[in-house]
Design a binder for these strands. Structure first.
Lengths: 327, 327
DNA sequence: TTGAAAGCGCTAACAA
DNA sequence: TTGTTAGCGCTTTCAA
């Protein structure tokens, strides 16, 4: 049964009303008698009519698509995060009959995003990541299309949805401090990501009074391992890992070195994921819900597309999970 | 500088020609003097005109979008594969001025795909995964929109792009056999995925004459670990892992048990990835290029959208990587 | 409460 | 080689 595509005209003719009436019945805009509306909707239901979103889009200058921008070269460890975020975006979008157009950027190469913007393919954009000097944000600001960033930025006038990393990391750090730690190391990734900086700040604030060591900008696993070696050499009390990948590598190295956790060294992670979830001993960490970020970001964006002006910064919660790795 | 959106009408007026002429200059269709065309193109270039794809779409009943369908609940291990595939799809799509609309399905729940189809949001679809009884394929066949599947299927009349898993696995298996293996175990994931079945067949054929043991449908890590225990109990010569995740867990278990690879047991994987890439000893495995799959699938789909009928089954190559884990 | 008609920006017959 | 005109399927003023 090849469903010949019904148009609004067909329905109007069939029902002996005008296109306008049909259109109004569907959209709910404009006055219409309940009787006719019901009649139209019933017909639509029975004949499985689906409006042509392209045509509607042209008339309203809308696409009913939103853009989802992610780094194309993200580390394997972040993939799951983006996956969950995106699922949130997709789900929230579907609720409003929106679909998600995906675009990748490579660091400062935002060609893909530009294409989508130039071609008017989306009504709004969600940025999956923020950089300190973010060319995507710049470009988006120039265009007149609404966008929201997942993550934080110091740029002004950018609607942001983020977990409150500073607070979360500060809280976890201060809890660790209370456990009687005298020296702690933070091992982390590249500092051009805003989130890295936030976590560092939380660490610094929460660990105030504790001797602090920093091993940042670790890209390769070896760099993390070197950092661990240095920590062991200095006999520090505690390693805090900036994310799950760092933690994963750190744990591997510590196992190799035969270090007992938490007896000889305590270990915590500022980000939990399946990568480290099954570790023995269980790792004290911070838990977030990436999907919630996606949902919130998308709902916010849809509101903006509808002309609303949302709160500039929305902070989502976190969970401190104290486990065996820190006593 | 808010770029007021130029339309084809503006250009026509400005240049004193008709819309048609402008349209033709852009599309290259229809005869036109080189002189006028150049004049038009130059104007377009200088004024940074971008045609409205929505309008063009409505006129041609095209969307200039293709759908990319992936499982929303895929294992963390497969994420990288899909990522790379998708990048191939996106790149190939961009070449033809197409964008990629992403949709997730959950096993047999293909609601997301249906929405996209019903709403006419895409000109074609690429399936990132094939199942043995694939509802997505069924739905796509019913709709009249072209699609190609990454992976294999026994359904008829489905354009498929895949790595030649059977051949690859047979080749690797027979190489292992030549090394004097007498008994071998295959540990694998759920058999509702076509690829799992193909790998199993390759194993069976390549290992002919060798005592074969099967531990399939392992979903949880524990199941894999149980399988490994059983292999050790039976003192088999070799474990072949169906994919990188299985291999990863297997290696972890073997390390826990203090098993020497390859001295006591040889280990190989039918799929290589960063998950096992850094293992000591290096793991014999099969290498593919997921991005190539995406590119090929997308180019094929675009050809179909243009009315061509491509070859039904395209097989991409593989690489056998012999490493220390099998001597 | 309903309808007629114009228009969104483009393409594609058909004419000239 | 170029232009005129009628759509694509929907929304939205404006009038009835």
């Amino acid at each position: 049964m090849t469903t010949e595509n019904l148009t609004i005209d067909d329905i109007a003719r069939e029902l002996g009303v005008s296109k306008t009436t049909v259109s109004r019945s569907i959209s709910g805009k404009g006055r219409i008698s309940d009787k006719t509306r019901r009649r139209v909707l019933e017909f639509i239901e029975q004949n499985n009519y689906k409006p042509n979103l392209i045509a509607r889009g042209l008339a309203q200058s809308r696409t009913y698509n939103i853009g989802w921008v992610v780094p194309g070269d993200s580390e394997v460890g972040s993939l799951y995060f983006y996956q969950r975020c995106m699922q949130g975006v997709i789900d929230a979008a579907a609720e409003a009959d929106y679909d998600v157009l995906i675009t990748t950027v490579y660091g400062h190469n935002i060609g893909g995003l530009m294409r989508v913007l130039d071609n008017h393919k989306v009504d709004g954009v969600i940025l999956g990541q923020t950089l300190t000097e973010d060319p995507a944000i710049r470009a988006l600001k120039k265009s007149d299309i609404p966008f929201v960033a997942i993550g934080s930025t110091e740029e002004e006038n950018v609607v942001q949805v983020d977990n409150d990393h500073v607070t979360a990391c500060r809280e976890l750090s201060s809890i660790l401090k209370l456990k009687g730690i005298h020296s702690a190391a933070l091992i982390g990734g590249t500092e051009d990501k805003v989130v890295t900086q936030s976590r560092r700040r939380g660490f610094e604030e929460g660990m105030e009074g504790v001797q602090q060591y920093f091993y940042m900008n670790c890209r390769k696993n070896e760099e993390i391992e070197h950092a661990v070696e240095d920590v062991l050499r200095r006999k520090l009390d505690c390693i805090v890992c900036e994310d799950d990948r760092v933690c994963y590598v750190t744990l591997g190295k510590l196992k190799k070195e035969g270090v007992q956790i938490p007896a000889q060294l305590r270990v915590a992670s500022f980000y939990n994921s399946s990568l480290i979830e099954d570790n023995q001993p269980a790792i004290t960490s911070l838990g977030y819900e990436p999907k919630a970020l996606g949902i919130t970001a998308c709902r916010t964006l849809l509101a903006m597309i509808d002309g609303q002006t949302p709160q500039e910064k929305q902070m989502l919660g976190y969970e401190v999970m104290l486990r065996a790795s820190t006593l």
